[in-house]
Design a protein around this nucleic acid. Structure first.
Lengths: 294, 294
DNA sequence: GCATATCATAGGCCGTGTCTATGATGGACC
DNA sequence: GGTCCATCATAGACACGGCCTATGATATGC
């Protein structure tokens, strides 16, 4: 496995023009450097230098390799430098729970263009556990996701709390009702939102009440689920925040689950610095506004 | 000095999520990986992971470092790959002797745009010895420079031979003459072309004939030298190929030096492949045409 | 409170990168 | 043509350090 010190030998030979000077430059003896280059060539599978007496010249393979070797060394130097100095992040990596309406994020991103002091943004979608994992890996900086009382692993900023509700087509016989019991939906075809954080609870709720529906669709997208509902394919249960002209959202009786949506901050980020930039403030405002007005 | 294996440990921890799984992934024991990370952190000057029991999370420094670590690993993989496979060069790196008229190269580059099968080109200027060094280092592929009989280090393709001549302003008293002896220029102010491959020979030629002129300018650019001559600042000696409306080029008596201009091919390049592409053919044609017509 | 998971520490083994010493080869120079 | 000097390659010894097993410290979960 090609090691770094071999690259330094290699580059030194290129720069110095011969093995002896290269060895001196690397603070090793000439034989050491010689076996090093030999080892590198063995690993490369072919000679990297043409040894004529009096001087060495790169072979074609050596010339190709040199470009990458230099880049690697430069990147090492940069890495060693950057790990010490606190360079501010240039992009905000935002995780977004899949069960948050896509429209909110679209609006947020659209309006972000006008926000002064905004950061370039990078969005990563995922389920709750995906986002938590990405957050702990340092792959994202902030997650717009569920905030749970028991999750104290990350600094949390709750934005709103909401319940879950049925989603029926506007033409559904029960569309005018305010609250509907599970039993009343016994004959209804249903749609499974596979990404839902409450999937098993919902399933349990119905089976416990003797309702074992046929599932007309299993989807990972809430937008498609809404489309199916609107078209009359079936009904489903979704977070209350999802609204659409073609569907109604009556309560499901005795289904008291709620969720709190908010921001979770990765352990590696400077939270105040992120809030200082207007980006996250804009996101929080947008989410709250969408929740109220949606 | 941060070694490659430490980077692999580091990245494995990020990917695996904890030290034990990372160690397994690297085929080392957990303690080995543990001391490896500790070593890396000591070299980095600060912790890269937040160790809470149950899991590890990247620190801010760790997150910054991770980007570069991944890039380095990717580049290593690429280097190992590229050194084996013969990927054709995508650019032709051309060295050009500084004492070759800039206009030739400009015309060549301009016309190259129309040449089918051309390679993107990258030009490196330098004196003869600079180009030879770059060529042997594999930094350039071909050099348009002096071809000497005794230089058999590189494959050579001569294009033309020429002498050297005086350069006088068109208004100079001796401008009409075909040949001028050094002694006739005793009172003339001269211009030193510092980059000239024949500088010392020229100087010797004059001093040997008792001419010790005042030097009005020392320049590294032939175009500026011509400008000085044209403006009447002084006279100089240049390769015969330099022409300009404002100057005349009489011979310098008993100055029999000539030079052969041609292409030198780096040891690392596949010469036939390069000629196969139309780029070098175009260059050779252009140089010969400029020489004839110039 | 025991079982289980985590990462850290200690001490010894051994691979390998390093050294010095020497050889092989090919100009340069008289 | 023989000597000198430069080049890179090879051989054998040393020792640093990366690796192991064994054990400890600490927190979580049933």
């Amino acid at each position: 496995m090609m090691d770094r010190y071999l690259l330094r030998y290699f580059l030194a030979v290129i720069d110095a023009g011969n093995f002896s000077r290269a060895a001196a430059q690397c603070n090793v003896s000439q034989p050491t450097l010689s076996v090093g280059i030999a080892k590198l060539e063995r690993q490369a599978g072919q000679p990297l230098f043409h040894r004529t007496n009096r001087r060495v010249e790169l072979t074609a393979a050596g010339a190709r390799f040199a470009t990458h070797a230099r880049r690697i060394e430069a990147e090492f130097a940069l890495a060693e430098h950057v790990v010490r100095e606190a360079v501010p992040r240039t992009t905000l990596r935002l995780g977004v729970l899949v069960t948050i309406p896509a429209g909110w994020i679209e609006t947020f991103v659209t309006r972000l263009g006008d926000t002064p002091g905004r950061l370039p943004i990078e969005i990563v979608e995922g389920r709750e556990r995906d986002l938590i994992e990405q957050l702990s890996r340092g792959r994202i900086d902030v997650a717009l996701t569920l905030v749970r009382a028991e999750s104290d692993r990350f600094a949390a900023e709750p934005l709103f709390e909401e319940g879950y509700a049925l989603a029926l087509p506007a033409s559904h016989p029960l569309a005018g009702r305010h609250t509907i019991a599970a039993g009343e939906l016994a004959d209804n075809v249903m749609i499974v939102r596979r990404q839902c954080e409450l999937l098993s609870d919902t399933s349990r709720h119905f089976t416990a009440r003797g309702v074992r529906p046929f599932f007309a669709a299993r989807t990972l997208s809430d937008e498609r689920a809404i489309g199916y509902v609107r078209s009359g394919l079936g009904v489903t249960v979704m977070p209350a925040c999802f609204r659409d002209p073609g569907i109604v959202r009556p309560r499901l009786a005795d289904f008291a689950f709620t969720r709190t949506i908010g921001l979770l901050y990765g352990a590696h980020v400077d939270r105040t610095a992120l809030r200082g930039g207007a980006t996250l403030t804009a996101l929080a405002d947008e989410v709250r506004a969408a929740r109220r007005g949606g």
